[in-house]
Every structure is written in C-alpha cells, then in structure tokens.
C-alpha cells in the first residue's frame, strides 16, 4: 500500500500572514504617530523623532531579556530594583575614586550578579513561582541600595558620561544606536539559534524539553542573568541621562517593561511571541507616552493608560480564545 507522504513545504496564506498581531501593532503605531504629529508640528521632523526616542529608550534595554523570561513562562519583577542597586553601586564606587570606566564595569557586574541570584533561586527552588522569588529579591535589592546611599542622591559623573544619553553620532543618538544593536542581537538569538529554540521549547513544555536532553536549568539561569545585565545597562543610560542616581530611582519600571513585552504579543502563558513585535511595542508605548506628555496630559493619567494597556493586551487574546471555544461548543450542540 502506498502511503501518502508528509510534505516539507506549506502554502503561503496571505490572510494568515497579515492577521498577525505584529501588523496590528504596526497600524496602532502609525496611528499614535499621526496623533502625535497633530499635537506638534515639529514632531514628525527627523530631529524631533530622534529626541523623543532618547526619552524612553533606557527601559527598552530590559524589554529584550524580559521577553525571553516571559516566553519561558516565568516573570521577573525585580528589574527596577536591579537598576537602582547597580546604578547606586556605580555612583558610590565612582565617588570613592574608582575610574568611571571601571565603575561602569562594576555596574554591569552588579546587574549580572542580581540576575544570576534570581536565576539560581528560580532553578533550585522549582516549587516556588518566579513571581514570589523576584518579589523578595526586589525588596532585598532595593533595600541594599537604601543601605548604601541612605536617602540621598549621588552623582558628579564626568562630563563625557552624559554624552551616552544625550550625544549624537551623525544626528542619531548613541542610545538609539546601542538599542538597535541589542535589538538585532536579541532578535537573531531568539529566532535563529538553538538557544532561542530552546527558550520557546521551555515555555511550551519544560518537562519535554528536559527529556529531550536540553539543560533547562542552564538556559533559565542564563536568561535571568541577561535580565540583570540589561537592567544594569539601563542603569548606566539612566544615570547618564540624569547625571545622578538615588535609591528610589526607576521605581515602577517593571510595569512599563512587562507592559511593552505583553503588548508586543508575548503570551503570559509562555511559549509564543516575536521579538519584532516587542520592539514595535517599545516605540509604540514610548511615543504614546511622549505624545501624551506633549499635550500636557498628567503623568498620572499616562500611568493609568499604561496599566490599562497591559490588561487589554493580555485580555484580548483570552477573549478571542473564549469566543472560539464558545463557537466550537455551539457547533457541537447543533
């Protein structure tokens, strides 16, 4: 008996292709920009756009590894504290006479250590959800920042340091260049390497991934450490932007970061999503907040909108699923 063969190519469906969440995001993104342009004549000029991106991109760095964490089905809410702690340590060692370059390296090291601790705890204490572990380390890291600096600010960084956040190379801000660099790396790693494939596999079914001979624990630790490292990069740009830091810096960043990731189409149930969507969401949310600021909307309302967006982004796929299930049920009953 000749059995039918399994084919190795599939037909391209343009409907399915354009129904992807990323296209919807792109449309919303364009709408936001049209809205902003109507608020301010200068907005759509090249310089204006560049300047706008400088305001919010520091958070954007954390978004990449956070996307990996959420794809794996975990979450890390300690990021804002990691930003605070690593920036506070950087400022303190600099003021104690360490050269700025070394201080930056120390900052990265502190971030990596914070992430590593989260990763090891998550892996070694599987009984506990990552929420509760990062919730405790969030308190702990922020607390250490307070011990180091009390309630004061520290700064006095060298002048060149502020160039990181405010400087341009051929009219393009340094921070944007660095952001694009990391965006490219993380996109390639997630979608084109074994490592990325494993991250998706873990998010869908970590047990089966382990049974497939993949060291799930190592991958989780690496990803959590990446969160720490990227949080310290955020800390560097944030400190450069303000030229000082305080223990209470960056509070509430976890909301913005998680909102960007979820808005970018990463499923909170794990295992699904695209980096391009997340990158779009960074600019979407950033420009939205910037635009609302342009017309003097209170920052509190911007927070409300961010919170609602987060919930909407999670609720919409769930509602779609419910409608699908409901229709299925009706078909069966008919």
């Amino acid at each position: 008996m000749e059995k039918p063969k399994v084919l190795t190519h599939k037909e391209f469906s343009s409907v399915r292709y354009f129904l992807q969440w990323e296209w919807i995001l792109l449309i919303i993104f364009i709408l936001v920009n049209i809205m902003n342009a109507s608020f301010s004549d200068n907005y759509l000029k090249f310089d204006g756009l560049m300047r706008a991106s400088m305001i919010f991109l520091d958070k954007g760095f954390i978004v990449f590894p956070m996307a990996l964490v959420i794809i794996m089905g975990d979450i890390d809410i300690s990021v804002s504290s990691t930003v605070a702690l690593s920036s506070v340590v950087m400022a303190t060692v600099y003021n104690a006479g360490v050269p700025m370059g070394l201080a930056i390296l120390i900052c990265l090291g502190v971030g990596a250590l914070c992430g590593l601790i989260n990763g090891i705890l998550v892996v070694k204490f599987k009984e506990l959800a990552a929420v509760i572990i990062t919730l405790s380390t969030m308190t702990l890291y922020r607390g250490i920042a307070y011990i180091i600096l009390k309630n004061q600010s520290a700064g006095g960084f060298p002048k060149w340091f502020s160039e990181l956040s405010w400087g341009f190379a051929w009219k393009i801000p340094y921070i944007l260049i660095v952001f694009v660099f990391f965006a490219a790396i993380f996109t390639l790693v997630l979608h084109k390497t074994n490592f990325g494939r494993y991250v998706f596999a873990i998010g869908n079914n970590d047990i089966a991934t382990r049974f497939s001979g993949i060291n799930v624990d190592h991958i989780k630790i690496i990803v959590f450490t990446l969160v720490g490292v990227m949080a310290s990069i955020c800390a560097i740009f944030l400190s450069a932007k303000m030229m000082s830091t305080r223990p209470n810096v960056a509070s509430g960043y976890e909301l913005d970061v998680i909102a960007m990731v979820v808005l970018g189409g990463i499923s909170t149930a794990g295992g699904k999503g695209k980096m391009i969507g997340v990158i779009t969401a960074v600019f979407l949310l950033g420009f939205l907040q910037y635009g609302l600021g342009l017309i003097n909307v209170q920052s509190q309302i911007i927070i409300i909108i961010t919170g609602l967006l987060l919930i909407l982004a999670v609720a919409i796929p769930n509602i779609q699923e419910m409608i699908k299930n409901f229709n299925k049920k009706r078909e069966v009953n008919l």
Partner: peptide, 19 residues
C-alpha cells in the same frame, strides 16, 4: 478573563494609584 493575578494586579495597581 483568565488574566494571571500578577499581571492583573500589577496593571490595576497603576490604574488605582493614578486615580
């Protein structure tokens, strides 16, 4: 709506704080 408690409360925390 089957939203994870952590996400729902994180989002609404900011909404209520804003209000």
């Amino acid at each position: 709506l089957n939203i994870l408690p952590i996400i729902a409360t994180l989002g609404m925390m900011n909404v209520y704080r804003g209000f």
